[in-house]
Computed example of a mutant assay.
Amino acid sequence: MTSKNKALETYIPIANLIAQTFGKNCEVVLHDLSIPQNSVVYTVNNHVTGRQVGQPFEHLIKDVLLSKNFENDCTANYRTTTIAGKKIKSSTALLRDVKGEVIGALCVNYDLSPLNDMKILLDEFMDTQQEKIEANVEPFDNVIEIVEDLINKMIGNSSVTTLKRKDKIELIQFMDKKGVFLIKGAIEKVAEKLNISKVTVYSYLDAIKKSENE
């Protein structure tokens, strides 16, 4: 501590506490604004930005005092970048003496680089694609064969000739929910296997939609 202002010494435990709480990526800098050209009087974890005792303040006016977020003597969570290209999340609070005069500033600088790498990893991991499938999709390669096999299994061992209308509607409703009829030619396949006309399948689908909307 190089400041002659003894009042600023009371903030050293606070600076240490903040740095110890948030770890090695958290730098805390204490400024004595009575000596602007050499305002830095105390640092913790100064490897984050490289701030050295005896240096002047950098962002106090532009990013703190002139910020639209400056309120109650502080500006929190503004972004700065070091010469080395590190992205830093910074917060600064003014320090006043018993007379209410500004005597210094306490700055917290957090290195976002490790978190940014984690964010990229999480973004890649959480990336998903939601494809909107329209009706009458032309199937690729053997898709229609796979779906036809699924249709056969949905019908199962039921005797088509003995299936009641209600049972056929329930079966078609299940197929519809599973996306069977999105595939081009599926309605014709189902009509053939249930021994009903294509028009009947359409009428069942209309009845199902009407029932679901009621």
Results as ranks from 00 to 15, higher is better:
Thr2Cys: 07
Lys6Ile: 06
Lys6Gly: 10
Lys6Met: 07
Lys6Tyr: 03
Ala7Met: 02
Tyr11Trp: 12
Ile12Thr: 09
Pro13Glu: 13
Ile14Val: 15
Leu17Trp: 13
Gln20Asp: 06
Gln20Trp: 13
Thr21Gln: 05
Thr21Trp: 02
Thr21Glu: 14
Thr21Ala: 05
Gly23Met: 07
Asn25Arg: 10
Val28Arg: 02
Val28Asn: 00
Leu30Val: 02
His31Lys: 01
Asp32Phe: 10
Asp32Pro: 11
Asp32Trp: 12
Leu33Cys: 07
Leu33Ala: 11
Gln37Met: 12
Gln37Gly: 12
Asn38Tyr: 08
Thr43Gly: 03
Thr43Lys: 03
Val48Gln: 00
Val48Tyr: 04
Thr49Asp: 09
Val53Thr: 08
Val53Gln: 03
Pro56Leu: 02
Glu58Arg: 01
Leu60Arg: 12
Ile61Ser: 08
Ile61Tyr: 05
Lys62Asp: 09
Asp63Ala: 04
Lys68Arg: 07
Lys68Ala: 10
Phe70Ile: 15
Asn72Trp: 03
Asp73Val: 08
Cys74Pro: 01
Thr75Trp: 02
Ala76Gly: 00
Ala76Asn: 07
Ala76His: 03
Tyr78Met: 00
Arg79Met: 05
Arg79Trp: 00
Thr80Lys: 03
Thr81Pro: 06
Gly85Ile: 15
Ala93Thr: 14
Leu95Pro: 08
Arg96Lys: 13
Arg96Glu: 05
Arg96Asp: 08
Arg96Ser: 11
Gly100Arg: 07
Val102Pro: 01
Val102Trp: 10
Ile103Lys: 04
Leu106Arg: 11
Val108Asp: 07
Asn109Glu: 11
Asn109Trp: 14
Tyr110Arg: 06
Pro114Asp: 05
Leu115Met: 10
Asp117Tyr: 08
Met118Asp: 07
Ile120Glu: 05
Ile120Gln: 09
Ile120Gly: 04
Ile120Lys: 00
Leu122Ala: 05
Leu122Trp: 04
Asp123Phe: 03
Phe125Gly: 07
Thr128Leu: 05
Gln129Thr: 06
Ile133Trp: 12
Ile133Pro: 02
Glu138Phe: 15
Val143Asn: 11
Val143Ala: 13
Glu145Gln: 14
Glu145Trp: 15
Ile146Arg: 06
Val147Trp: 02
Val147Thr: 06
Ser159Gly: 12
Thr162Phe: 06
Lys164Val: 14
Arg165Tyr: 13
Arg165Val: 15
Lys166Gln: 11
Lys168Tyr: 11
Ile169Thr: 14
Ile169Trp: 06
Glu170Ile: 14
Gln173Ile: 15
Met175Gly: 13
Asp176Arg: 14
Asp176Glu: 13
Lys177Tyr: 11
Lys178Asn: 15
Val180Glu: 04
Val180Asn: 01
Phe181Gly: 06
Phe181Cys: 10
Ile183Ser: 03
Gly185Trp: 15
Ala186Thr: 01
Ile187Thr: 03
Lys193Phe: 08
Ser197Gly: 07
Lys198Asn: 13
Val199Tyr: 06
Val199Ala: 09
Thr200Asn: 07
Thr200Ala: 09
Ser203Pro: 01
Tyr204Gly: 12
Asp206Glu: 14
Ala207Thr: 05
Ile208His: 12
Glu212Trp: 12
Glu214Trp: 13
